[in-house]
């Protein structure tokens, strides 16, 4: 196996070889993973079925939004993994679940169910607001997750509670709030299951515009501040001492992470969205040793694995989120193998 891989990819030293060749190698490797997976099923019949699926608007929406979210997650993931902040993604996704559950529970609030001591006008006003939030939960979830992202950042910077412990406290509490809200209102129904494990049907046409604009903004901001983010990630004390605005940079990273998670979690599921952040970065770091190459490779791997995952989920009627995690795992293992083979 090692021999074959060496033939295929060359046995250059880790730093040798041109960058383009190594990027191509990464793309080929991920494609190979996809092909191996697809071959397990009957490829011929599958292609026809795929064409059928691509005719559906919701699949095309899921592919478009998901690809952008996968790009965001891949870029941010590199920074979060290197900053030892991987758990932040996981924590925030739990918070997102809590926010979505509370939002949908608010749909059951009526003017009559509110306490009687409130004036009549207030009650109908609150009920109307709750209805609006339940009808369009995205802005609400976004606000809650961003707020909690800042809180987590502050806690891990200032408090004597250790960062990872603080995140675990917050995220499990948010999860508990979500579960209680769901069971008090409608029970653990299909909606709640969809929040947890994602659904390809989750993106309505009305959400699509926002869900495309937000990740585009995230990618643009990340690339613009890439150099500062690198400086802060590599060495925070140095960056602080030499006058880089470290606090603002960390805020930006938190904000972008929060947006990525909220946009992606309905598709991927709140339990699985953090894998989108962690996997591609780790996969890229197996083979690449320059920051720019790692970013590029992470982005390519992430998008390929996402598309492959969605296709698999169509073909075999698997939950999209879970299928994407599995393609990411396959890419990770493949890259690990190649790294081993090259020594």
């Amino acid at each position: 196996m090692a021999h074959v891989l060496e033939k295929l990819f060359g046995s250059g030293a880790p730093d040798g070889g041109s960058r383009a060749a190594r990027i191509a190698l990464a793309a080929i490797a991920a494609l190979a993973a996809l092909l191996v997976l697809c071959n397990l099923g009957a490829l011929g019949a599958a292609m026809g079925e795929l064409r059928l699926y691509l005719g559906y608007g919701f699949i095309r929406r899921a592919l478009a939004v998901g690809t952008l979210v996968a790009l965001c997650a891949a870029l941010l993931g590199v920074t979060l993994v290197l900053k030892r902040y991987s758990m932040i993604g996981d924590g925030l996704s739990h918070v997102g679940f809590g926010a979505l559950s509370v939002a949908s529970a608010l749909g059951f609030v009526t003017a009559d169910s509110l306490p009687g001591f409130l004036p009549e006008g207030w009650r109908s006003g609150i009920a109307a607001l709750c209805g609006r939030i339940a009808g369009n939960p995205l802005p609400f979830a976004l606000a809650v997750v961003i707020a909690l992202a800042f809180l987590i950042l502050r806690i891990s910077e200032r408090s004597s509670l250790r960062g990872d412990a603080a995140i675990a406290l917050l995220s499990t509490s948010a999860l508990a709030v979500g579960v209680i809200a769901a069971s008090l209102s409608s029970g653990m129904n299909v909606d709640v299951m969809n929040y947890m494990f994602g659904s390809i049907l989750a993106l309505s046409e009305s959400d699509a515009a926002v869900s495309v604009a937000l990740p585009l903004a995230v990618i643009a901001l990340y690339l613009l501040f890439c150099n500062r983010i690198f400086a802060v990630t590599f060495d925070e004390p140095f960056a602080r001492a030499t006058g880089t605005k470290v606090g603002r940079c960390n805020l930006l990273i938190s904000l972008l992470t929060a947006i990525t998670i909220v946009t992606g979690m309905r598709l991927m599921g709140t339990m699985l969205i953090s894998s989108l952040i962690i996997f591609p970065a780790l996969t890229a770091m197996r083979l690449f040793a320059r920051f720019r190459d790692v970013l590029l490779c992470s982005a390519i791997v992430s998008v390929i694995c996402f598309v492959a995952g969605i296709l698999l989920s169509c073909l075999w009627a698997m939950p999209a989120g879970a299928a994407i995690v599995m393609t990411n795992l396959a890419a990770f293992l493949l890259f690990t193998l190649i790294a081993r083979a090259r020594g």
């Binding site: 290197l82 900053k83 030892r84 150099n227 500062r228 690198f230 400086a231 590599f234 060495d235 140095f238 960056a239 030499t242 006058g243 880089t244 770091m285 690449f288 040793a289 320059r290 920051f291 720019r292 190459d293 790692v294």
Partner: peptide, 19 residues
């Protein structure tokens, strides 16, 4: 964390200019 950071020498040195 720094010892196994994936970055080239040039990228690290250039980051000194961030300020």
């Amino acid at each position: 964390a720094q010892r196994d950071f994936p970055a080239s020498v040039e990228e690290v040195v250039l980051s000194g200019c961030a300020s």
